[in-house]
Structure formats: C-alpha cells, structure tokens
C-alpha cells in the first residue's frame, strides 16, 4: 500500500462514449462550421462540457450517468436587496449542470448541484483550473421537479425554483464568456418549450417541467416566455386529460408539502432551536428564504407532457442543439426573442 505513489487529488481521467449523439464538435463540422479557437471541442473550451462537475459525477467515487454528457457552469449564489449581492464570499461558488440519466433521452432529465470552494486567490477558470478546487456534490434533482428561468439578462442571473418552493438566484460566474449564458438561455427555452423534434403536434404543449407556474415575472424575461406559451396553449380538455396522472401525483406532493409545512411550523415553535448556529453555516447549499405561497397549486389546470421513454429514433443531443441554436459569434443575441 505504501509503495503506491501519492496521487494528486481530484484529477480524474474521463473517458466516455457517445453512443447515439455526435459531440458538439461533430455537430459543428456537420454544419460546416469551424471549431472555436482551435479547440478540439468548443464545449470543453467554453467550460460547459467535461468540467469539474462532470469529472466528479463520472469519477469512480460516483460513477453516475457515465455515458451522458453534462452541460455545466460555475455560478455565484446571489440575493436581491436593492441590487444583486453575493451571499457567500467569492471563494464559494456553485456548480450547476444538467445531464440525462440515459443518453438517448431527447431532453435532459437530471439537474446536478455542487458546492465549490476555491483556494485563496485562485483563478476560478471553470474547465481547466491550475489547482482543482474542493467540489462537493450536494444534490441531484429530477429536472421535471425544477423550474429554471432567466431572471436578469444583464446580470446573467438564473432563477431556480424547485417543486417544494426552494428558490435559488444564481449569477453566472464572470469568468464565463457571454456565449455560455446564451447556452443557458437556450436550455431554459428547451425545458419550457421542448425541441422542435419532440413533437409535431402543435396542440401538445411540450414541457419538461412539472413545477406549476406562479405569478413571478423576473425582469420581464419570463413574462415574454409566458406570453409565448399562452399563445400556443392547446385545448384545455386535452391538456387536462394528459395532465391527469401527473396531477394526481403532484397533488399528493403538495398535500405532503402542506402537511410538512404545518408540522414544521408547529415544531419550530415547540422545539428549542439552534437556528443561530445552523443558519448559513454551509456556503453554497442554502437558498434564499422564500415565501411558502402554495397558491399556485390551484393553477395546475393545464397539461404537462414529458417523454422519458421515447420509442422512435432519437434526435441529436441537447448539447448539439444548444450549439446549433446559439452558435458563438454568428448567432445574434436571442435574449430579446424569448
């Protein structure tokens, strides 16, 4: 045992196969476009593919979703006072990524969240840091139980809301180029509207998200998305029919959630809390306290649709789609069109 040399920490060689999808690079070539800056894979060059989060979940320690690509970025958790302010010190960031439990799915179905602690004064370059930061996988969420929205274009802030009303505001790390935020914008669009190839039936609202909409409208962006969605709303009866099964499941979740909230408020009154010591002790994992307004439960009257087990031939990967629709340099800002 002692004869084996010390291995550098967190350097994991990732070797993966892409059984059904071309890589970003292949897709670019298919489109007759040159790779960015001579990088063999522009996704890697931009720090959205094969980053630290991907390396961690594919490492022997986790060995999760080994055949699926991970689209990821580095974020800073913020909250809004008069302006956006960082919650934690600069050395603590959050890695956010999406992937698929199996690579043949048309849409990603898994959200990954990890806390990252950088060394003092270390450049937080995402894909190739000089020294690996301390990264801890915090949670894996089914994407259908999460709602992603573009909260602030200029500040490059995402709003992440879970079905249990946990809300995070995440600012894309300044080290990422603007193209990366456009990828996230495209991802939000895909998760909300689906891909053109997901269904050809305009009456079917393709959405991957089971988190019902609420009245939140972040700086106008999602308002426009909502409008667009409403314009293509299918007939209510069809939607209700489709939604029935999932509505029942969700109703149960909400009933549990309601019960849990009641129980929590009871117990918080009864128990002697150690809240002082527990609050915000762990950087990167806590969310902004949010109101527990569950009124949106009542708004669950429209359908939801997801295709986790498609039977037909599978389309290009999400990442290819992202690249295709947000080609760096060539594609104009799509933010305004959301």
């Amino acid at each position: 045992m002692s004869s084996i040399p010390q291995r550098k920490k967190k350097t994991v060689k990732v070797t993966r196969s892409y059984p059904t999808f071309p890589t970003l690079n292949a897709w670019e070539e298919f489109r007759g476009l040159l790779p960015v800056d001579g990088e063999p894979n522009p996704g890697v060059g931009l720090g959205v593919e094969e980053g630290l989060l991907c390396q961690m979940v594919h490492s022997p320690e986790f060995n999760l979703f080994p055949d699926s690509v991970v689209f990821e970025s580095n974020f800073v958790q913020v909250k809004k006072d008069r302006k956006w302010i960082n919650i934690y010190k600069a050395s603590n960031t959050m890695a956010l990524g999406v992937t698929s439990s199996v690579p043949c799915l048309p849409l990603p179905n898994i959200l990954l969240m990890a806390s990252v602690k950088w060394h003092q004064g270390q450049s937080q370059t995402w894909n190739r840091p000089s020294t690996a930061p301390h990264i801890i996988l915090k949670r894996i969420l089914p994407l259908k139980l999460v709602e992603l929205q573009i909260c602030d274009h200029l500040q490059r802030i995402l709003r992440l809301r879970t079905v249990t009303e946990k809300i995070y505001y995440l600012r894309l790390h300044p080290d990422h180029p603007g193209t990366v935020f456009r990828f996230w914008i495209r991802l939000v669009q895909i998760l909300q509207n689906g891909l053109s190839i997901t269904t050809k039936d305009p009456r079917i609202l393709v959405t991957h998200c089971l988190v019902p909409k609420n009245s939140y409208s972040p700086s106008g962006d999602s308002k426009l998305v909502q409008k667009k969605l409403q314009a293509s709303q299918p007939s209510e009866s069809l939607m209700q029919l489709m939604a029935k099964g999932e509505s029942e499941a969700l109703s149960q979740i909400f009933a549990d959630l309601h019960q849990h909230n009641q129980f929590s408020s009871r117990s918080s009154k009864k128990t002697d809390t150690k809240k002082d010591s527990s609050e915000k002790d762990t950087p990167g994992e806590d969310c902004i306290p949010c109101t527990r307004d569950l009124s949106w439960r009542d708004s669950l009257t429209y359908g939801e649709w997801e295709r986790e087990n498609p039977s037909g031939p599978q389309p290009l990967s999400l990442l290819s789609t992202l690249a295709a629709s947000t080609r760096p340099q060539l594609t104009p800002l799509i933010g305004n069109s959301i």
Binding site: L111, I136, L137, K138, R139, I140, L141, P142, L145, T162, V163, T164, K166, D256, L257, H260, S264, S265, S267, S268, T271, T273, K274, K275, S277, S278, D281, T282
Partner: peptide, 19 residues
C-alpha cells in the same frame, strides 16, 4: 455530518448528499 440539528427542514426531492 455537521453535528447540528435543524428543526425546520425543506422536504427532500431527488437526492441530497452527505459524506
């Protein structure tokens, strides 16, 4: 993992990790 008790805890969805 943290040697602390948090009486009010969010419902877990998906998986949360500790080590």
């Amino acid at each position: 993992t943290d040697k602390r008790f948090q009486p009010v805890h969010d419902l877990t969805i998906g998986v949360e990790f500790g080590a």
